[in-house]
Design a protein around this nucleic acid. Structure first.
Length: 564
RNA sequence: UGUCCUGUGGUGUAAUUGGCAACACGUCUGAUUCUGGAUCAGAAGAGUCUAGGUUCGAGCCCUAGCAGGACAACCA
């Protein structure tokens, strides 16, 4: 093959993020025999949000890119807050996003026995001890940045005694919180995590998987690294807040002499005008500020799905935001760009009038109904065409008419001409108002020779309006969403609670919308473009007799921008 | 006060062993358009936190500062 002479391809090496660089270095040096194994370790205590999507797109993406595998591992070490309903929701989200983990669905709780054995080993080495101090008492021994912790009075208890007590802790002989197992490391470390961290606590609680088998549960640090090691994870990717945990992660692996997984930290995703804290999102749900985890205003994957976001658009987004170690705030406009770009290619165009006003074509035969052909998606010829009924009485958007328009208003106004999309050119002759001065009817005449697509149709007019035939229109409810918060960083104020920035107008429900008859048969979560308005999807509340649409995102609107 | 991490256009991410800062979003022009969408063409916008130093040459190396963030749960 020598066609490089015809089109010399300058194969610029794709620029790698710092994690890809590390992986490639490891591959080149033959570390782990060229094996790449990652994992995504959600805690089943809440719903996944778009920040998690960034993380698991990375985890699964790195594995895919380098011929490796990515495990799904539920980090279920805290039975009090965790639940199988979350497990199911998380599974659904990851699948929806397009990732597969085959049979590699693991649970930290799968390793409780192994972890117990590891703990025994640590005690035997004199590197861990059972401590009888209460939480308050432990806190009282805590030093400061430059003062070491005071040693627990149980720190030097014999190996035999710790072994015995630990076994009895496991057997359920002690009440909750009465004892802990702690690693014996360095009370003077500048890293607080190394000051005899707690490995196990006593919780007589029912676990969603292990039931009542255990009454001692491992802490994050003790469970996570060892779980990675057990699974042979080569690159354990996590967010920045775990940087100070890394020395402990490595200490456990070294003391236990087990497979050396490597923890690598990157900066979590922050999105402007939204919050990403699971705890705070839960608060919004519990306090009724939103309708649930899948409220379309939520940054959860459940919320985004219901809002009409596509997996492809979210994947593209996580790709565009990049991976680095520097704190970042991504403009929500980038997310919106990603959905628009995706939906522009695949969403069928349909006519919907959100704020209808009646338009009457005075010179159109009263009983006549035409079936006008229109293209389903100008960006995709294969989407074909469909027919739409056209008649003497139509609905158009109230905003598309102005009695006294400013310059550059390309829409309908007295004496002015516009085209009705896929139909005729019309001219406004008069308006009818009610007692309050509200316009109730707009009377126009049409030019029969201007039929869309006909030879006579070449005449140009400035504006094109969408419309729906009044006798054929379907009623619909349309829910418009705006950002949930008015502040670009609702969680970034020391003095003010994030809830003070909730946007009271984040949801607008329009009940009197008119949509074209073809929408009779839409299905949940179908994506559509309402011509000239934006991308919409069918809400899960929708039924054939009571259509409900969510606005995913508006079209770019330079007219609105001009008018502030 | 301590330790650790991070500082590149408005935002985010790049810049192969040091070689005169690139891409995307956003913004602004213009063309085109039966969606004020899309598309196409173009522009503005950083001299890389600061100050020194090494070098023919530094965003990349060295030194000293400064700024922001993280950590001090029997949460993960």
């Amino acid at each position: 093959m020598s066609e490089e002479n015809i089109e010399p391809k300058i194969d610029e090496p794709k620029s790698l993020n710092f994690i890809e660089q590390i992986v490639e270095e490891d591959l080149n040096s033959g570390k782990h025999g060229g094996r790449v194994q990652t994992r995504f370790p959600p805690e089943p205590n809440g719903y996944l949000h778009i920040g998690h999507a960034k993380a698991f797109c990375l985890d699964f993406g790195i594995a895919q890119e380098y011929g490796g595998k990515c495990n799904l591992r539920f980090d279920d070490t805290n039975p009090i807050t965790e639940d199988t309903s979350y497990v199911d929701a998380i599974r659904k989200d990851i699948k929806w996003m397009g990732f597969e983990w085959d049979d590699r669905e693991y649970y930290a709780s799968d390793y409780f026995d192994q972890l117990f054995e590891f703990a025994l080993k640590l005690i035997q080495k004199g590197k861990a001890y059972v401590c009888d101090l209460s939480a308050d008492e432990v806190n009282a021994t805590r030093g400061t940045d430059f003062e070491p912790d005071k040693p627990s009075p149980y720190r030097d208890r014999s190996i035999e005694e710790s072994l015995d007590l630990f076994q009895r802790m496991k057997n359920g002989e002690f009440p909750n919180d009465s004892k802990t197992l702690r690693a014996k490391i360095d009370l003077a470390s500048t890293n607080m995590h190394m000051r005899d961290p707690i490995l196990y606590r006593i919780r007589h609680a029912h676990h969603h998987r292990t039931g009542d088998k255990w009454c001692i549960y491992p802490m994050y640090d003790w469970a996570h690294g060892q779980s990675d090691s057990i699974e042979g994870i080569t690159h354990s990717l996590c967010t920045l807040e775990f940087v100070p945990h890394r020395p402990l992660y490595e200490w456990f692996i070294a003391e236990l002499g087990i497979f050396p997984s490597r923890q690598i930290e990157f900066a979590r995703l922050n999105l402007s005008y939204t919050i990403m804290s699971k705890r705070k999102l839960l608060q919004l749900v519990n306090e009724g500020h939103v309708s649930g985890w899948d409220d379309p205003r939520m940054p959860t994957l459940h919320g985004l799905r219901r809002r009409g976001y596509t997996p492809a658009s979210i994947r593209a987004f996580t790709e565009l935001v990049g991976i680095a170690k520097r704190e970042n705030v991504i403009d929500v406009a980038l997310l919106e760009f990603c959905v628009r770009e995706d939906l522009n290619k695949l969403a069928p165009r349909v006519m919907a009038v959100l704020n209808p006003v009646k338009l009457i074509i005075d010179n159109y035969p009263g009983a006549q109904v035409e079936e006008l052909e229109t293209v389903n998606n100008p960006e995709d010829e294969s989407a074909g065409t469909r027919k739409m009924p056209f008649s003497r009485e139509l609905f158009i958007e109230r905003d598309d008419f102005m009695e006294d328009p400013p310059k550059k208003f390309f829409r309908l106004s007295p004496g002015n001409e516009v085209r009705l999309k896929s139909a005729y050119i019309i001219k406004c002759e008069s308006v009818v108002k009610d007692v309050n001065g509200e316009i109730t009817e707009i009377h126009v005449t049409y030019d029969p020779s201007s039929h869309s697509g006909s030879g006579e149709a070449q005449r140009k007019v400035k504006g094109t309006l969408h419309w729906v035939s009044a006798p054929h229109a379907l009623n619909a409810e349309v829910r418009l969403y705006d950002r949930l918060f008015n502040d670009s960083d609702p969680d970034g104020h020391k003095e003010q609670n994030f809830k003070e920035f909730l946007n009271p107008d984040s949801l607008t429900i329009l009940k009197n919308c008119k949509v074209e008859p073809s929408l009779k048969s839409v299905k949940d979560l179908d994506h559509l473009q309402f011509t000239r308005l934006g991308y919409f999807s069918v809400d899960t509340d929708s039924t054939p007799d009571a259509l409900v649409f969510n606005r995913t995102v508006g079209l770019k609107d330079t007219w609105a921008k001009l008018n502030g």
